[in-house]
């Protein structure tokens, strides 16, 4: 009986050991070695003393924040609207569908759309506005990143709203709350958990976006993700790359703590 149970832990245990614990340990270990292979704390010193890395970190956080904010602004009303529709599962599926397509493919599609001879530019020329530089701008980077992240924000919010009992809304209206008061006092607080998980699943990956910054942003925006990639593949400074990796992991943990479920004694919250 006991052994049978143990058996079920094997896949999970292997997974955790090989793909979670080992990489984290290796990254932390690597971050204490300089490019010559000597044990040192200089990587951390460099990170905190050179303005370049701090600026990069600020950039990453700032862009991740912008992406998350824009995504949230679009996703919440969308998720709310979807819940009012008749065939809501179908409409939701249409939004989820693009996530099944490879990220790189979608990014390349945007290069085609936004490039000098792309469809969008042709259209702008046609209506007399263009041609304009669309690709390799901050705006296009934010646009594409937001596009990619939106389904991951909509889904948890949609679920939270779907689980919200309509009698809460009725009760609020009944007790004299206007539409806006009902939203701000009842609907939004009760769906906050959905928003939090949406923010987690958008903000954290956005911190280390590097492919979109490169392909769409044209490396004008250098984030920590780009830095890691450069250190590992170009400068071969694994120590510095790992250090930034550690910083990213710490940032993720902080985000998780900030957006995590507040533990209030005896309070049950709806499941996500």
């Amino acid at each position: 009986m006991k052994q049978g149970k143990l058996f079920y832990y094997i896949p999970y245990g292997l997974w955790i050991a090989l793909f979670v614990i080992a990489p984290v340990v290796l990254i932390v270990y690597q971050s204490f070695f300089n490019i010559a292979g000597h044990f040192t704390l200089s990587n951390y010193a460099t990170y905190f003393h050179s303005g370049v890395y701090l600026k990069m970190t600020f950039n990453s956080v700032w862009y991740a924040f912008l992406i998350t904010a824009i995504t949230l602004l679009i996703s919440y009303p969308t998720a709310y609207l979807l819940n009012q529709l008749k065939h809501k599962q179908l409409w939701l599926l249409l939004i989820i569908l693009p996530t099944w397509i490879n990220l790189l493919l979608k990014t390349y599609a945007f290069i085609g759309l936004l490039s000098r001879s792309g469809s969008v530019d042709s259209f702008l020329t046609f209506i007399g506005i263009g041609p304009k530089q669309l690709l390799f701008t901050d705006a296009s980077f934010l646009f594409v990143a937001t596009y990619i992240e939106i389904p991951f924000m909509i889904l948890p919010i949609y679920n939270a709203i779907a689980e919200l009992s309509p009698s809460y809304v009725n009760a609020s209206r009944d007790l004299g709350a206007s539409g806006w008061q009902t939203f701000s006092r009842v609907i939004f607080p009760l769906t906050l958990d959905g928003v939090k998980s949406g923010v987690q699943s958008v903000f954290i990956p956005s911190l280390s976006l590097f492919m979109i910054t490169r392909l769409i942003g044209g490396n004008r925006v250098i984030t920590l993700g780009t830095a890691i990639e450069q250190h590992f593949l170009v400068t071969q400074n694994w120590g510095m790359g790992s250090t930034i990796g550690v910083i990213l992991i710490v940032a993720m943990v902080i985000t998780m703590l900030l957006t995590g479920e507040r533990k209030k004694k005896g309070r049950t919250r709806h499941a996500k």
């Binding site: 009760a171 209206r173 009842v186």
Partner: peptide, 16 residues
């Protein structure tokens, strides 16, 4: 919200 009528709901609908 403009009616001078209040309701006690079957599931109480107390805000959690």
């Amino acid at each position: 919200n403009k009616r001078k009528v209040n309701t006690v709901f079957q599931d109480y609908a107390l805000f959690p």
